[in-house]
Amino acid sequence: HNGKLCKLKGIAPLQLGKCNITGWLLGNPECDSLLPARSWSYIVETPNSENGACYPGDLIDYEELREQLSSVSSLERFEIFPKESSWPNHTFNGVTVSCSHRGKSSFYRNLLWLTKKGDSYPKLTNSYVNNKGKEVLVLWGVHHPSSSDEQQSLYSNGNAYVSVASSNYNRRFTPEIAARPKVRDQHGRMNYYWTLLEPGDTIIFEATGNLIAPWYAFALSRGFESGIITSNASMHECNTKCQTPQGAINSNLPFQNIHPVTIGECPKYVRSTKLRMVTGLRNIPSIQYRGLFGAIAGFIEGGWTGMIDGWYGYHHQNEQGSGYAADQKSTQNAINGITNKVNSVIEKMNTQFTAVGKEFNNLEKRMENLNKKVDDGFLDIWTYNAELLVLLENERTLDFHDLNVKNLYEKVKSQLKNNAKEIGNGCFEFYHKCDNECMESVRNGTYDYPKYSEESKLNREKIDGVKLESMGVYQILAIYSTVASSLVLLVSLGAISFWMCSNGSLQCRICI
């Protein structure tokens, strides 16, 4: 991952900044910058967002509201009850120091605090018919004063009620008058409520006091790749198909172990950190130390980045220098085999997901714990399936590479015959000098055995068991695999060879 928040398929997220979902939807004055928000790819909250409900109280069923919003990608904020005409018999300019803005008392931008007009609070009834052709999110509140005197001074009615009804919602609220500790300079409380109004449905408000009335509502448009994440990451000019709280993932790998919460087309989250597919040879310690064997393909974004291909070729060293050249036929066979294998694994496992966190309130801790156990169970199954699949494929890959290298080895052996000696570690020792032209003939299969047989015969008789390297004779190393990324691999195959001279070296080696 890149540690950044990015656009998702070209669409920017909605960053709530210092506000949370509650503050944004109710219209906390400190969240005025969010009022123009219309569309987004996903919503970003920060872990310690401080601006929620400015007048103390709870947004009821907040967790369910977050779940609903996680599939919303755009909205239209509109005046559901026009301020100047909807409440002619009531005062609608209630403000509070708890919702101060720029040093002055204020109130929510989407709600109206209705109080008595003169000395009376006549029963009010108002309704709205949803003609938007889509779901409408309606929010309101109920004020709970701290004393009967406060109730009387604001609403005149000691036994007030609030009723809200639609086809799918029907509740009646009565204020709970009680002494409470002071929070944000208030002994009173406000509880906030919401409902989704279906197209064509009607919502009716009736009250004799204590109503925090809707002013603006939201017509919602769903987008199934949307979601809500909690993150401290910063926004950058970048684009992605998959976003996590820790950063964007741009990967076609089937798995990731970065974060379980994802938005967009994302690899499946697994616990494993070692889900690797081999593309090189079986481990040979001396070669492995030099980083030549054991190439791997990573299938977990965050564990290993991208696929690494092994390729086969020849390396030689003689009086004229040293050089490398790919054996294109065996390399292409290996590439085709690995590509098919990788595609097979991805096809089997690479279903892209959006995974969002589930919200539970403080009273639902047991449910949250149960949900976590269920999620953990599914996660263990996914991890096991992934590891088992790759384990089985790896064994076949190792066998496949062994065969490829063996074929190259036999190709060289059949040409050199007794003009060189096998020394048991995949290397041959020449009994004759071999210049670049000679080396090329070994690589392309045109090695002239009779041409060098007499010199080889004489050297075999002279050496008589002495280690060949100390006599200045020449080696050919018969097994060799270097490691390159897919891009470098293609470039390498396009070149005939490249040279690395070893000044004054008397050794001649050709490596497979």
Rank of each mutant, 00 (worst) to 15 (best):
231 S>G: 08
231 S>T: 15
231 S>F: 07
233 A>Y: 06
234 S>W: 01
235 M>V: 14
236 H>M: 10
237 E>N: 14
237 E>H: 06
237 E>M: 05
239 N>E: 12
241 K>Y: 11
241 K>M: 05
243 Q>F: 07
243 Q>V: 07
244 T>R: 02
245 P>E: 10
247 G>S: 07
247 G>N: 03
247 G>M: 09
248 A>F: 02
248 A>K: 00
249 I>C: 10
250 N>P: 00
251 S>D: 02
251 S>M: 04
252 N>D: 15
252 N>S: 11
253 L>D: 00
254 P>I: 09
257 N>W: 06
258 I>R: 01
258 I>D: 00
259 H>W: 05
261 V>D: 14
265 E>D: 14
265 E>K: 12
268 K>W: 02
269 Y>R: 00
269 Y>D: 02
270 V>H: 02
270 V>T: 07
271 R>Y: 08
271 R>V: 04
271 R>G: 05
272 S>A: 14
273 T>H: 04
274 K>E: 00
274 K>C: 04
275 L>Y: 08
275 L>T: 04
275 L>S: 08
278 V>M: 02
283 N>L: 04
284 I>H: 12
289 Y>L: 12
290 R>G: 00
292 L>D: 00
293 F>L: 14
294 G>W: 05
295 A>G: 08
298 G>H: 08
302 G>T: 05
303 G>H: 03
303 G>V: 02
303 G>K: 05
304 W>I: 08
305 T>S: 11
306 G>I: 08
307 M>S: 00
308 I>G: 02
309 D>Q: 10
311 W>L: 11
314 Y>T: 05
316 H>E: 00
316 H>G: 00
316 H>F: 14
317 Q>W: 09
317 Q>L: 12
318 N>T: 04
319 E>Y: 10
320 Q>C: 04
320 Q>G: 07
321 G>D: 08
322 S>N: 11
323 G>V: 12
323 G>H: 06
324 Y>K: 09
325 A>H: 07
327 D>S: 02
329 K>F: 11
330 S>V: 01
331 T>E: 05
331 T>M: 07
336 N>E: 06
336 N>Q: 15
336 N>T: 15
339 T>K: 09
339 T>L: 07
340 N>D: 04
340 N>I: 12
343 N>C: 06
343 N>S: 15
343 N>Y: 01
344 S>M: 10
345 V>P: 00
346 I>R: 06
346 I>Y: 02
346 I>A: 02
349 M>F: 08
350 N>C: 07
350 N>R: 14
352 Q>I: 04
354 T>R: 14
354 T>I: 08
356 V>F: 06
359 E>M: 02
359 E>A: 12
360 F>Q: 09
360 F>G: 12
361 N>C: 06
362 N>E: 12
364 E>M: 10
366 R>L: 09
366 R>M: 06
369 N>S: 14
370 L>I: 08
370 L>Q: 07
373 K>F: 10
373 K>T: 10
376 D>H: 06
376 D>G: 09
377 G>M: 13
379 L>H: 13
379 L>D: 05
381 I>R: 02
382 W>Y: 09
383 T>L: 05
385 N>H: 10
386 A>H: 07
390 V>N: 07
391 L>H: 05
391 L>T: 12
391 L>I: 10
392 L>Y: 13
393 E>N: 14
394 N>H: 08
395 E>I: 02
396 R>Y: 07
397 T>I: 07
399 D>N: 13
400 F>Q: 08
400 F>L: 13
404 N>H: 08
404 N>V: 05
405 V>M: 11
405 V>K: 09
405 V>Y: 01
409 Y>P: 05
409 Y>Q: 09
410 E>S: 13
410 E>I: 07
413 K>R: 15
415 Q>P: 01
415 Q>D: 01
416 L>F: 10
417 K>I: 13
417 K>S: 10
418 N>D: 13
418 N>A: 07
418 N>L: 11
420 A>L: 05
421 K>W: 03
422 E>R: 05
422 E>Q: 10
423 I>H: 12
424 G>T: 13
425 N>A: 07
425 N>M: 13
426 G>W: 11
426 G>V: 02
427 C>N: 05
427 C>T: 06
427 C>P: 09
428 F>M: 12
431 Y>H: 15
431 Y>N: 13
433 K>P: 01
433 K>R: 13
434 C>L: 09
434 C>I: 05
436 N>W: 07
437 E>N: 15
439 M>R: 02
440 E>R: 13
440 E>L: 06
440 E>Q: 02
441 S>H: 13
441 S>R: 14
442 V>Q: 05
442 V>E: 07
444 N>Y: 07
445 G>F: 08
446 T>P: 01
446 T>G: 11
450 P>R: 14
452 Y>V: 00
452 Y>H: 11
452 Y>I: 12
455 E>S: 10
455 E>I: 13
456 S>F: 02
456 S>E: 00
457 K>T: 12
457 K>Q: 08
461 E>F: 10
462 K>N: 15
463 I>W: 00
463 I>E: 08
464 D>M: 10
465 G>A: 12
466 V>N: 04
466 V>Q: 11
466 V>D: 01
467 K>R: 13
468 L>V: 15
468 L>M: 07
470 S>H: 14
470 S>Y: 09
470 S>M: 02
471 M>T: 12
471 M>K: 03
473 V>G: 10
473 V>S: 09
473 V>D: 11
476 I>D: 01
479 I>W: 11
481 S>N: 08
482 T>I: 07
485 S>E: 01
485 S>Y: 03
485 S>Q: 07
486 S>R: 00
487 L>E: 02
487 L>T: 13
487 L>K: 00
490 L>K: 15
491 V>F: 09
492 S>D: 15
492 S>N: 01
493 L>V: 12
493 L>T: 10
494 G>I: 01
494 G>C: 01
495 A>F: 01
496 I>M: 10
497 S>A: 06
499 W>T: 06
500 M>H: 13
500 M>K: 07
500 M>C: 02
503 N>R: 11
503 N>Y: 15
507 Q>H: 09
507 Q>N: 06
508 C>K: 02
508 C>W: 10
509 R>G: 05
